[in-house]
Design a protein around this nucleic acid. Structure first.
Lengths: 331, 331
DNA sequence: TACGTGTGTGAAATCGAATTCATGGGTGTG
DNA sequence: CACACCCATGAATTCGATTTCACACACGTA
């Protein structure tokens, strides 16, 4: 283990000078700088980040905490953030909250003990995540992304109303007179906003909103279950707008299995535009995940006093599940 | 910032004793132990992980390095490993190599500077990743997963031959007399093994292997491109076995768009069984990703002298893209 | 010539916990 | 009853870098 002291001796300077050269935080005479650089190359010196973190009180790492890494919307955000941050030489400690508020609180403690310089977190629950998040935000800069739980911290997300309005307008244009929303949820701020936006958009664009269907957890299984209920019920709405893509996939495969054709018999839309949506031909709403990650990373770099709330604009991506001529639907 | 010293003063003991209580690494009289615990609760003491890491020369964290977090096979592995490790109170520093050997080497340096206790890495390239990996493995325990690049480090993966044999046998049983393999690759050990296994399995099971098709990168675009070529060529093989699911998706949608029906006109299989495969109805090979992550984490816990190579057994998951009665195909 | 001003440099203190070492009291055995 | 031994404990050292502080030297100006 070659330390700064060794380099100092080799270069014939004091450890302090080596530190100044390595961190670049102070001016050093060109001759000595050279000597130090030569010496550290010769000895293969690698600064110890742990020691540096202890003394400088900054670990050069940030924590990212997501409800569930397997949800495909997160890797994209994480990656974008990681890339943006790598340029500033800050690395990422990643944690998964397992969709559980208690686990989430524990992870926040862990990250704090590791002295991360900041936190990027997508809260598990609008309400129940708040206490732990608040506590964390008091100790270290914290940015919420995708979902939010507390007002006093930064937030980067999309304008859900804008996305849902595009969906409803598109459904209306392709001939839907009636529609349901599947995926209302009491714990995820993004889904809550989507449900409300759906109702408002339907009212505004003359689509009859049959219902907003609540789900326990917005995955494919919930979509399948809903579809089975729908088939049993008899009458189908003209369109089903889903809170995310997995719900839509579940509905789609279940309806297809029962012989219901999409888009001929029913229109279906998803939300998030995860990679699989393209292959499934699912009309969805792109969440600008990359931008979200990049934006979040950028907010981290520039500290601020007042909480900042950034809303990116999502974009509708029409595909085959709504592929009828606009202005010429069945209604 | 409340430190150990504060707790010691409050509890009326020395800092050394507080340390002993906190780490649990030495015996302490019950009375004092109590006093320390009470004091640290009262003061809200949280040990500083950075300081502890410096002195104890162990950070309590491991590094996970993957070629691309957005590849859906990795989040599952990461999550399983993270959960397994969390129980042992070790956290995860995650890095993305951007499918680039140079970036990968840089990340390995970063992780080493952070003094991670061990590394879990999926190498970007069989050959080109080797030097950096070897260097890293000399300094810290290293486990390769999914793909391998060096012999002298542990490896956890699946038995590719077993998986591919199941695929070919299944294709044969559902009536395929001719088949091609799409997704040969010169840089990813797993795909290399799959390609070779395909040829051997075809020979062994009486399927005529038309070709193994090399791709630049095994994604949906490559699948589409191949499918277009196939359509232009005129004759279709009875079956297409793909090196991964994305390739299969690309082929599937492109063929469907051209009016080729699957499974009626052609059989298609993927590999990895990513979540979307279920919705797409794609026959695939499940890689036991969870087990892989868990197994890797377990290897980390128990150090060893000789490199260990663990091969898990994958399982074929038949779905609609090969849904014909077995023993009654067209041939 | 004398006196600021500025700048590069090294010695030493520091970050917070883990660990080593010496000590004193208690226990067990001969 | 004495002697050896064990164990809990605190004082002091250590991990490897950063940062403070003071100093010496060079330069410019009066």
């Amino acid at each position: 283990m070659v330390t700064m002291k060794d380099v100092a001796r080799e270069a014939g300077v004091s450890p302090a000078t080596v530190s100044r050269v390595v961190t670049g935080r102070a001016r050093v005479a060109p001759a000595k700088r050279d000597a130090v650089e030569r010496a550290s190359k010769k000895l293969g010196y690698q600064p110890d980040g742990v020691a540096a973190a202890l003394r400088s009180r900054s670990s050069g790492a940030i924590g990212i905490l997501v409800p569930d890494i397997e949800n495909p919307i997160f890797p994209a955000v994480i990656r974008a953030a990681e890339h943006e941050l790598a340029q500033a030489a800050v690395d990422v400690v990643l944690c998964d909250a397992d969709n559980d508020v208690a686990v989430e609180a524990g992870r926040l403690e862990t990250l704090w003990r590791r002295r991360v310089d900041a936190l990027l977190v997508c809260p598990v629950h609008v309400r129940d995540s708040a206490p732990a998040l608040r506590a964390a935000a008091r100790r270290v800069p914290l940015i919420q992304f995708d979902r939010h739980a507390i007002e006093e911290a930064d937030f980067v997300g999309v304008d859900q109303a804008a996305g849902m309005t595009q969906v409803v307008r598109h459904l209306r244009a392709t001939g839907a007179g009636t529609a349901v929303f599947v995926g209302r949820h009491t714990g995820m701020s993004s889904l809550m906003e989507r449900a409300r936006a759906f109702e408002e958009a339907c009212a505004a664009h003359g689509v009859q909103a049959w219902a907003t269907v609540e789900v326990e957890f917005p995955d494919g299984a919930a979509g399948r279950a809903y579809a089975r209920g729908l088939l049993a019920g008899g009458t189908l709405p003209d369109a089903v707008a889903c809170a995310n893509d997995e719900l839509a996939f579940g509905i789609l495969v279940e309806l297809r299995a029962a012989g219901v054709r999409c888009p001929e018999d029913i229109l279906i839309t998803g939300h998030d535009d995860i990679p699989a949506a393209e292959y499934m031909g699912l009309t969805s709403v792109n969440q600008a995940l990359r931008d979200k990650g990049r934006e979040a990373a950028r907010l981290l770099q520039q500290a601020s006093d007042a909480p900042r709330h950034v809303r990116l604009t999502p974009a509708l991506v029409p595909r085959t599940t709504t592929a009828r001529d606009e202005r010429r639907g069945r209604t």
